[in-house]
């Protein structure tokens, strides 16, 4: 049996008048830093849940406090997914930072995965006092992110039709969703205004100015750095790109070995 002395406290803070569900992971001793953890969205959040829990526990075990929370319309927080937009979710992060600064006596940094990392990076641009910024496989190009999600939807429709013995037409499913004024992200309906906001994401333009240390963690099957991730890290005044070989934790449900991702993050944070 594994016995751990870290504390996990169920907490709540307000954003946009809604109480957000959160878990505060605290190390046994006074933390050297607190990290606000912003999750990925839609199907990617469901897939990444276990990895995020494991990461928060490992970070707490290494001396960092972590606030893991659900954005409005996601997970255990109130509201419908389609009722909020990217600005609302950035506001959630800002409120989480204020709450954490009030709750824990330690510098506050940001950690995010996929779209959660992108939103964290955008919030960090407005808050120059961010202690550290850790971006796990951030969405750098919003149009590419939308294309990826549409493809997943098409492939899933194609496979579902195939398993049911029907003619597959994933493209038709995507067109039907678009005709309804939404974009289907693997079962999550994204409204046209949010799609527009996502399409405008470009973390390289304007170049980031966040002055604190920034880690861009590239997670891939090859373990080699993707060129856009390296460019993003280079754009930060104190940026560093690290690549790890691991399965895409935001795409798979089941037991996934996220240890390379977590270890690389802990080691990098300890060096700051």
């Amino acid at each position: 049996m594994i016995v751990t002395s870290i504390e996990e406290r169920l907490v709540s803070f307000e954003s946009g008048g809604e109480p957000l569900h959160a878990v505060l992971h605290l190390p046994p001793d006074a933390p050297t830093m607190t990290l606000v953890f912003s999750h990925p969205f839609a199907e990617e959040k469901k897939c990444a849940h276990r990895t995020m829990v494991e990461a928060a526990r490992a970070l707490a075990d290494a001396g960092f406090a972590v606030l893991r929370f659900d954005h409005r319309g996601c997970g255990d927080s109130p509201g419908a997914f389609g009722a909020y937009d990217l600005q609302d979710w950035r506001e959630d992060i800002a409120q989480a930072l204020d709450f954490t600064a009030h709750e824990v006596a330690a510098p506050v940094g940001l950690l995010g995965l996929r779209l959660g990392a992108t939103l964290a990076a955008q919030v960090a641009e407005q808050r120059q006092q961010t202690a550290s910024l850790v971006l796990w496989e951030p969405i750098i190009d919003g149009e590419r992110y939308i294309r990826q999600n549409l493809r997943r939807t098409m492939i899933k429709a194609m496979m579902t039709a195939h398993e049911g013995g029907e003619e597959s037409d994933g493209a038709a499913a995507a067109r039907a969703s678009q005709a309804a004024g939404t974009v289907d992200f693997d079962g999550y309906q994204v409204s046209e205004p949010i799609r527009e906001q996502m399409a405008q994401i470009n973390l390289l333009d304007p170049p980031p100015a966040c002055a604190g240390p920034a880690l861009v963690l590239n997670i891939s099957a090859t373990g080699s750095a993707a060129e856009p991730m390296q460019r993003l890290a280079d754009a930060y005044p104190r940026g560093e790109a690290i690549s790890v070989r691991a399965e895409p934790v935001w795409q798979r449900i089941g037991v996934i070995d996220a240890e390379p991702i977590i270890s690389a993050t802990v080691e990098w944070l300890r060096r700051q």
């Binding site: 990826q148 493809r151 492939i155 899933k156 895409p248 795409q251 798979r252």
Partner: peptide, 9 residues
């Protein structure tokens, strides 16, 4: 599965 196919694409 569908996740694998996406990776192949």
């Amino acid at each position: 599965d569908s996740v694998n196919l996406f990776e192949i694409v």
